[in-house]
């Protein structure tokens, strides 16, 4: 399938999810189930995307685990996106250098 077509389909789907409720739905969604469901979607989705994928994103599973743990630890004290992301990233980089030295 043509890559431009795929990108267009992806963009259109994302856009319509945002545009339809903004233009057509003037009243709030009444269903408690749908509201609750949408309330839980972001965390469920981000969790499923992160784990266990983060373990296989790096060259070595150990550095992936360390990156994850450091990310969680930093996020417990400070929820600055950039800070957490860069700490995870640096942890992975440094631990891979160390692992590389140890293995030789």
């Amino acid at each position: 399938m043509n890559i431009y077509l795929l990108i267009a389909i992806m963009a259109l789907t994302t856009y319509l999810i945002r545009a339809i409720p903004l233009t057509l739905l003037k009243k709030p969604i009444k269903s408690q189930f749908i509201n609750s469901f949408l309330h839980y979607v972001p965390v469920a989705c981000l969790t499923a995307m992160t784990f266990p994928a983060i373990l296989y994103a790096t060259d070595n599973i150990i550095s992936g685990v360390l990156g994850l743990l450091v990310g969680i630890l930093i996020a417990c004290f400070n929820n600055n996106l950039v800070l957490v992301a860069i700490s995870s990233c640096l942890t992975v980089f440094l631990s891979e250098q160390v692992i590389g030295l140890l293995i030789g």
Binding site: Y40, P42, V43, L46, T47, M49, T50, A53, I54, A57, T58, D59, S63, G64, G67, L68, G71, I72, I74, A75, C76, N79, N80, L81, L83, V84, A85, I86, S87, S88, C89, L90, V92, F93, E96, Q97, G100
Partner: peptide
């Protein structure tokens, strides 16, 4: 090796979104 660690950047961001939400309560 730098590229590999950059790919973790995104997961780091997801962690930063999830952790504070989870701290809010049992349901999350």
């Amino acid at each position: 090796d730098i590229r590999a660690s950059l790919s973790v950047m995104l997961y780091g961001m997801f962690i930063a979104i999830v952790v504070p939400e989870v701290k809010k309560g049992k349901a999350m």
